[in-house]
């Protein structure tokens, strides 16, 4: 089966049936949980300091439940109403917004202590209409520029995603850098087809003192 992002836009692909199927699949739950914990680790927030986080593409709240357990306050945005519906049913604690991240955010400067995003930004690489504002570079630029503004200085944004080529990684990283972010890509288990995971670790500020973390390796 081809990747979901090639089949239909996310709000169509994750309709009622798919949203429930996705959320109730225990294998997906486990993978999403593992990646959320890893994203939190890469976020490397000061310990014992409560924080307000942004969950980009929060979906049905699989990552949000972990943010709840870990004691974070959070705001989640997603473009698929059916996924948000499921998140409501699961009674997550975060505030949920129906939002197209490619249209950009309106959060005031310095609103969030950090952001995480699990299996989402590859969706921004598909043009949905022929209108110029919906080209992937346009959407990525609005997304990263308004996200950069919404984050505190210093802070981090961690994105686990599924790129299909090095060109895609290049495009995403270069637009993020133009928007003001530092950082780069972390690949966990690069030599394992199954366990390999790509994380984009973006930094706001920090005076160049923030180093891109190392990927995990099998020992």
């Amino acid at each position: 089966m081809s990747r979901p992002e090639f089949q239909a836009p996310p709000e169509i692909y994750y309709g009622d049936t798919e949203a429930k199927k996705y959320t109730n699949n225990s294998r997906i739950q486990q993978i999403q949980a593992d990646m959320t914990y890893r994203a939190l680790e890469l976020l490397s927030l000061p310990s014992d300091q409560p924080a307000l986080l942004l969950d980009i593409g929060c979906g049905s709240g699989l990552s949000g439940e972990i943010l709840d357990e870990e004691g974070y306050n959070w705001v989640g945005v997603d473009i698929a109403p059916s996924m948000l519906e499921v998140a409501l049913e699961r009674e997550v604690e975060g505030d949920l917004f129906l939002q197209d991240i490619g249209q950009g955010f309106g959060f005031r400067p310095g609103s969030f202590d950090g952001a995480i995003s699990i299996s989402v930004i590859q969706w921004l690489l598909n043009a949905e209409t022929s209108h110029p504002t919906s080209s992937p570079p346009h959407r990525l630029t609005r997304f990263f520029t308004t996200l950069h503004a919404a984050l505190r200085n210093p802070s981090r944004a961690i994105f686990q995603f599924y790129p299909t080529s090095d060109d895609q990684v290049q495009l995403i990283t270069s637009i993020a850098q133009k928007a003001g972010f530092g950082g780069g890509v972390v690949v966990d288990y690069p030599n394992s087809n199954k366990a390999r995971k790509v994380f984009l670790c973006l930094f706001v500020g920090g005076g160049g003192g923030q180093q891109v973390p190392k990927g995990l390796e099998v020992d």
């Binding site: 109403p81 409501l88 949920l96 917004f97 129906l98 939002q99 197209d100 249209q103 309106g106």
Partner: peptide
Amino acid sequence: NGIPNMLL
């Protein structure tokens, strides 16, 4: 239903 629609 508690969810603001931010779509433009």
